[in-house]
Amino acid sequence: MSIPYVLLGILATGPQHGYELKRQHDARFPEARPLAYGQVYTTLQRLARDGHIEVLDTQADGAPERTRYCVTHDGVKKLRLWLAESIPPAPFITNEIFAKLVVALLDGDRTVAAGMLSRQRDMYKSRVEELLARREAVESSPAAALSLDYAFDHLAADLRWLDTVAEVVDDLGEEISNTGQRHA
């Protein structure tokens, strides 16, 4: 996720200070890693330096100072350009489960791979059940529901892949073992 653009998008709804931006982010992206305050303020400094946001005012009111920021014309332009860009699918497989599977199959002992796949599948199934239970509780929040649906759909795809791989683990192990021998 591109934090600078997300913060620009939130600021496009109206001026806010860093604490509000963090809360807004965490509320709108409940399945994402919560933002650290340091990350918010570092990003705000960069956005201000680059002319995409500016300080609107600083409020104290007997509490710690809070600087409110607003998006600039250049910031809105940058945000709209980002929103218009399509995101290509990832060109390479970078999934750690896939890497573990290949390594587990290298030595020819399929039980290691089968055990890893079974444990991984159980973990994913538990997470799916957790998301389904939470999904019913967030019906009134479209952003939370979309976030949970996104997480659920990715887990469901991973579970399908784990099932497919579990069915062909012996054949796949042979292929991986032979590939290494041919190139040695």
Rank of each mutant, 00 (worst) to 15 (best):
P88M: 09
E96V: 12
E20C: 04
R33K: 12
E65K: 15
R33T: 12
V102R: 08
D50A: 07
K77R: 15
L79R: 08
Y37M: 12
G108K: 03
I97E: 09
K100H: 12
A99R: 08
K77P: 00
Q59K: 15
T111H: 03
K100C: 02
L79T: 00
Y41T: 15
E31S: 12
F29N: 11
A32I: 00
D61Y: 15
G75W: 10
A32N: 08
V40M: 09
S86Y: 07
G75C: 04
V76R: 13
L106M: 13
G108P: 08
P64G: 07
H52K: 15
P89I: 09
N95G: 00
V71K: 02
D57A: 10
P30N: 02
L105H: 04
V55H: 04
G108L: 10
V103W: 08
R66F: 03
L105Y: 05
F29T: 05
Y69Q: 04
V55F: 01
K22C: 04
S86F: 12
G62L: 12
H73T: 06
A114G: 02
A113T: 01
L56K: 13
K22G: 04
C70T: 15
V40S: 03
Q59C: 01
P91S: 07
G18Y: 04
A60G: 02
Q39I: 05
E20K: 14
K78C: 05
D109R: 13
A27L: 15
R28S: 07
G115T: 10
L35P: 02
G108N: 06
L47P: 08
R46V: 14
R49P: 04
M116W: 03
Y19P: 01
R46H: 08
T94N: 05
L21F: 00
Q39R: 14
R110N: 05
T111Y: 03
E54A: 06
G18M: 10
R28W: 04
A32S: 14
G38E: 13
G108H: 05
A48M: 09
W82F: 15
T67Y: 01
H73E: 14
G18Q: 05
W82E: 08
L56R: 13
A114D: 06
F98S: 08
T67Q: 09
A99M: 03
R66V: 03
P88H: 07
Y19L: 10
T111C: 00
I87E: 12
A60P: 00
E54I: 01
A84L: 11
M116F: 13
A63D: 11
D26G: 07
L83D: 03
